[in-house]
């Protein structure tokens, strides 16, 4: 294990959604390679607070790579340089002594900046609210084992269901498309028997809401898949397109 590092950070600072932002340079001295990226920012922030300067705002919560709250574009890449890794699970051993690190918020018209590096991803919630569920209430459901699901289908649906809703797919896409995110949920239900009754209505409602929110279209660059911390596959997008297309015929 190498020794501690001295780093330079160029961080996007923006007071609120209506203010204009700019890069500010900070020193991050004596950073241990065992720190997570967010712990490195904690250290910088603690130094700022000691000097009565406003600490850098960034979203984070579980710090285990599962809540989907952390974000950041690090040196041009959402969640930084490693594959299948959220920012909170990125460790400083991925960087070298003397590095300059550029840190920006996720950039998309549908994700307005809240402050500094934190953005508003409520568009994602509204897409889920449009149809990302099975319309059943609590109680009155069949015994769990009355619904047999082939393991391969269950596993494939699970792969789609692992999406953490972080928005890296949008940030990675030159069109700021949300299709990987939306297609993951549509796919999960399209594959499972529980999702069948509302299969096409759901696809249609979620896609329309996605467009309403101002996300761009997909031009098949696969940047989303490359940067997805949960390795959600672009085949979900193909499935979503098929579902949406079929919805037109089935609507009747």
């Amino acid at each position: 294990m190498s020794g501690n590092m001295n780093l330079t950070l160029k961080v996007w600072r923006q007071k609120n959604s209506s203010a204009s932002g700019k890069f500010v340079t900070y020193k991050a001295p004596e950073i241990s390679p065992d720190m997570s990226f967010l712990e490195m920012l904690d250290v910088v922030n603690e130094g700022l607070v000691k000097k009565s300067e406003d600490p850098i705002q960034f979203d984070h919560d579980c710090r285990e790579g599962i809540c989907g709250m952390c974000s950041l574009v690090i040196n041009g890449e959402p969640h930084g340089p490693k594959r299948a890794t959220t920012t909170c699970q990125l460790h400083m051993r991925s960087f070298n002594d003397g590095d300059t690190i550029v840190i920006e918020p996720f950039r998309a018209a549908a994700f307005p900046v809240v402050k500094d590096l934190a953005v508003n991803r409520s568009a994602f919630d509204r897409i889920q609210q449009a149809g990302g569920y099975v319309s059943i209430g609590t109680g009155g459901v069949p015994d769990a084992n009355e619904i047999a699901i082939p393991k391969v289908i269950a596993d494939e649906a699970f792969n789609s269901a692992t999406c953490i809703g972080c928005g890296a797919c949008v940030a990675a896409c030159k069109n700021a498309s949300a299709m990987l995110f939306v297609s993951a949920k549509i796919s999960q239900y399209a594959m499972l028997p529980q999702g069948q009754p509302e299969r096409y209505a759901r696809a249609e409602a979620m896609v329309l809401q996605m467009d309403e929110e101002g996300f761009g279209g997909c031009t098949n660059t696969y940047a989303c898949e490359a940067k997805c911390p949960k390795e959600i596959k672009v085949t979900n997008i193909a499935r979503m397109n098929r579902e949406f297309f079929n919805a037109e015929f089935i609507k009747g």
Binding site: V134, I136, V141, A144, P150, A154, A157, Y189, L192, Q194
Partner: peptide, 22 residues
Amino acid sequence: VNIIDQCVAQGVPFAREYGGLL
């Protein structure tokens, strides 16, 4: 026991055996 039924009906992808059951 009701919780498991509820979650499965919602489409929660629990682990399954090859026979398709939980």
